[in-house]
Design a protein around this nucleic acid. Structure first.
Lengths: 159, 159
DNA sequence: CTAGGAGTTCGAGCGCGCTCGAACGCAAGC
DNA sequence: GCTTGCGTTCGAGCGCGCTCGAACTCCTAG
């Protein structure tokens, strides 16, 4: 699942009821207590709009640690799911896998790394803001072109 | 140059004087007359923030046709540069190479394909809008996290 | 007892979009 | 004349982020 791909999936999800899932899930996981029952891999996959394959991949590259149940099946607790929601958000906004791996490593190293984590987040925030600017420009360009095509169809137009 | 990569480059370019290049270039090329002199490959590369390698690549996959001068060197006329500006904008907003190839093929087929081109642009406009929504969500999530880290540093924080 | 379905591990493979290096041509400057 | 520099073509290679298939285990329903 390439970044763009990830984006397209999330985008179709957004279409459903105009993006309530993401926000609700974040609130459920960030604000509310840890009362949710452990989830299976397919449940998490459905929740996040990704494949079980990808979830296993994330685990094996060290992005998340997942418990096993009696059968040896993965059992995603609130912590794991919460982290995956966060990771997905970061991936969606273009943070590289290697950066996420670094971030997660920092988390494991304890509270001393909070400043560095903060730095990463601040930098990423700026990246997102610049992406927003870029996208806004692209949107303008696209709408301009649409206008020249749709505004008066039949106009000589070379590209 | 992967999509994300392309984005990062454009983003650093944006930093310079807060994105005047893109807008100015678009206006110069879209609104003004075709008075500009042909450009060399490195000039175009610098203009668009991409490498000559990539420009040759775009040409060989059929995205653009470029004249040669007496020495056999590429000579980018206004039309070619204008198209490349457009293509770059589309790439930056995540349109796939294969879609751009399709679009360009339609252009070559003449005015009959205007409706289909319009469809592509409309669809892409929606994609950009959804990306904007997604990015805005990610920005919110990032800022939330920054607040929990930076707001009161030292707080217990598990990821 | 059997069949189905959901999970597991492992390693290999893939699609995208560049990116690069080798071998070469040509023109200008010392 | 020779180097420097900027260009050319061609094909191969690469990094990223998945994605998949094979071979296996286990539980449950009929």
């Amino acid at each position: 699942m390439a970044t763009d791909d990830l984006m397209s999936r999330a985008l179709s999800a957004l279409d459903e009821v105009d993006g309530p899932m993401s926000v609700e899930v974040i609130h459920r996981l960030v604000d509310a207590g840890d009362a949710t029952a452990p989830m299976t891999i397919t449940e998490v996959a459905d929740l996040l709009g990704m494949s079980p394959h990808t979830l296993r991949y994330y685990e094996r590259v060290g992005l998340v640690t997942v418990d096993r149940d009696a059968d040896g099946h993965r059992s995603y607790g609130t912590g794991a799911v919460r982290r995956l929601v966060f990771l997905t958000r970061m991936r969606l906004s273009g943070m590289a896998m290697r950066d996420l791996q670094h971030y997660v490593r920092l988390v494991d190293e304890g509270d001393d790394t909070v400043p560095e984590r903060l730095d990463m987040l601040l930098e990423h925030r700026d990246t997102i803001r610049r992406q927003l600017k870029e996208l806004t420009l692209s949107l303008a360009a696209t709408e301009y072109k649409i206008a020249t095509y749709g505004g008066h169809t039949g106009t000589r137009q070379t590209d």
